[in-house]
Design a protein around this nucleic acid. Sequence first.
DNA 1: TTAGTGACAGGCA
DNA 2: CTGCCTGCCACTA
Length: 105
Amino acid sequence: MTEFTEKVIQLIKSVPEGKVCTYGGIAALAGSPRGARQVARILHSMSKKEGLPWHRIINTKGYIVIKDRDGFLRQKQRLEQEGVTVSDTGAVDLQYYLWSGPAAS
DNA sequence: TTAGTGACAGGCA
DNA sequence: CTGCCTGCCACTA
């Protein structure tokens, strides 16, 4: 459990409902602008712990990109459940739902 | 140790 | 928006 990992987890848990954040954004806030992939790996590892709102993390294009088909569906449903509009393809309106960090609160 | 791979990002056509 | 390619970092065989 590195410091980077803890920060990433804290940030993700800090994302308000109805908002989403990008992998790169979380990585940057955690102190590693190039750690987007590590953020993804952390999410994949922590996904089994339902305590983390991993469904609010998407890629920089505003699209849900996930390896597991079921995971994609669960994420889409959870986002819509929080009031986030998600297209069938997994597209999210970043300019309205993007969360830029704790300072944005 | 090297090679392959991935829930990514950014630049370009 | 879509497709292709390069760069990054950590994990696995």
